[in-house]
Design a protein around this nucleic acid. Sequence first.
DNA 1: TACTTTTAGGCAATCGATTACATTTTGAAT
DNA 2: ATTCAAAATGTAATCGATTGCCTAAAAGTA
Lengths: 345, 345
Amino acid sequence: MDKGQKEVTIYDIAEKLHISAATVSRGLTNHPRVSKSTRKSILKAAEEMGYRSNSIASNLRSKKSNVIGVIVPRLNSSFMSDLIAGVEKVVNNNNYSLFISQSLETMQKEVTNARAMLNNRVDGLLVSLAYDTTNIEHFEPFLKRNIPVIFVDRVFEHASCPQIFIDNTKAAYEITNHLIAEGCKNIIHLTASLLRNVYADRLSGYKKALEESGLQFRESNVIIGDLSSQAGIDAAAQILKMEKLPDAVFAANDICAVSCMIELQKHGIRIPEDIAFAGFNNDPTACVVQPNLTTVNYKGYEMGEVAAQLLINHLIDKSDLQQTHSLILRSELIIRESSLRSKKS
Amino acid sequence: MDKGQKEVTIYDIAEKLHISAATVSRGLTNHPRVSKSTRKSILKAAEEMGYRSNSIASNLRSKKSNVIGVIVPRLNSSFMSDLIAGVEKVVNNNNYSLFISQSLETMQKEVTNARAMLNNRVDGLLVSLAYDTTNIEHFEPFLKRNIPVIFVDRVFEHASCPQIFIDNTKAAYEITNHLIAEGCKNIIHLTASLLRNVYADRLSGYKKALEESGLQFRESNVIIGDLSSQAGIDAAAQILKMEKLPDAVFAANDICAVSCMIELQKHGIRIPEDIAFAGFNNDPTACVVQPNLTTVNYKGYEMGEVAAQLLINHLIDKSDLQQTHSLILRSELIIRESSLRSKKS
DNA sequence: TACTTTTAGGCAATCGATTACATTTTGAAT
DNA sequence: ATTCAAAATGTAATCGATTGCCTAAAAGTA
């Protein structure tokens, strides 16, 4: 089973027009050193003959692929798919293509994927790290080759890699303060691997808020899981077993917050009267669940756009990436009924 | 700003080991005609020298890229991101890579994206069509070259393109029948472009159920939009203006169903007492919204896995794709409170 | 020992486009 | 008609790996 008839190449066009392949190549790429009339005849012949530029050959020779690589923990999360959609839009509008892979939250796959990206000679890389990634040596080969690597959301400190994220500490600080202002004094925090800035920072914002309000931070109030829907259910079970019920739960994402909340409701807990709730991300479910979930609005789409644009600008005009080391995007606290206790009391 | 120091090639390895590049190439690809000892020394040298296989060069010569292309309407929908996650898993496990682009529901972008995929010489293509795609001439160049094209979910009838989807007619028939069994007689159907099988088939299942129950089908009961969250809100407004309120709404996806339902609730409509609701897809929100939404379970992840596996099997063992023309996956009706009126009456 | 087969490895063309450099053509100015 | 810069095109090397065909060496066989 072969690829059907032979492909039309620039040589075929050259032969037909009795000109050289070099001129054809120039004609097809709008090189200024080819006359208008020749270009026109080249384009016409290309069209007629069903010519399809072979990017692979072009990439090999020109040592650039016009491909951006993306490595994310998972593709099927509301946040990540938004992020990727934003990236795709920008990348596509700039005539680049997108190579995508997911690490499934393991460093091992992240390493494998990075290697595949390198072999495929992507021009740049956008990365959001897996839960258990402990170092980023697997990106060194890119940096050594001056291939830009940009971290998004789940970042890692490295002199030559720009980072794009939000101020997680501040956001968590604000949301915790809000809960405290609503009268909560015993706040559970659901989170995931503290290796990741997003979770470590949210935890520190939470701690800071407690501290400033003179509330004691208790290690046992931090439940570390994978922030999945199941993790929320498990956390609910754990909470129900506590000798003294907490008066608030702040989860590091909405998925987990919502499932935990619903599970607790099934056991007769009233939200927010018995336990106030807050999440993170402003997932679609946040304003569907009853009561609507207080959360941090933090949409991936723009983050994806910004990251992709930064990368592409660099690739196009070679602007110095080091200039922009960290890009901190805006996030906002969205207060909904799940945390509003003061009105009721 | 160049790519740093020169890349290590098989020639460098060959020179160092005083053997030919051909042998190095064979050694690296586990070709049987190279001795164990030479292979070992090649691998060792490659490792030491930091050799990275250049897939581009390899692709050019071997005329195969080990890349699968995917074109979907959007990346940031729960269903599509699940589907892509399934595809990615299978593709990745088989040492292929993934090229992804979104058509944003327009045929124009679909055409452009297809061309980019072709230029990049993908080995195969998975496609889910845009709303307004009227023909699939843009995939002919693939077929002419014997590059397999498989349609997923939003399919198109074509002799050489396998299709993977669910029985939308049957699912819609069942869900409509269920609503009728619950006593509904005036059922609104929210859907999108009838150019797409998924929506046309659901409509015909809806019609068939009405017909068989002796209920009259009314054109004015079908509201065509884009099934977005906003479309649900718009539909709610339209419904509220009707001289006689419907007693059920069956939306062709959950996003739209949920937003429509919530909007109606805001206007004092009780679900399911006043209006029963049903959606399609079993999105995460379906079991978060109150009351939980009756829907069709129809997860994209497995569909993605199946599609990718079919494609890859074909690429690997050249099994005849024509063998499997249509693959109809299982779907199931999930009845939840949003449509349960009989108990209450 | 002589001959055949197997195994390991080398040679060189090839994939298709790009591009530095060389050459020819054009056209304007003298 | 001559000159010369500018414009247009051609030549040929190059990117890095693969592979059909060939040869040499090793192993097996009689």
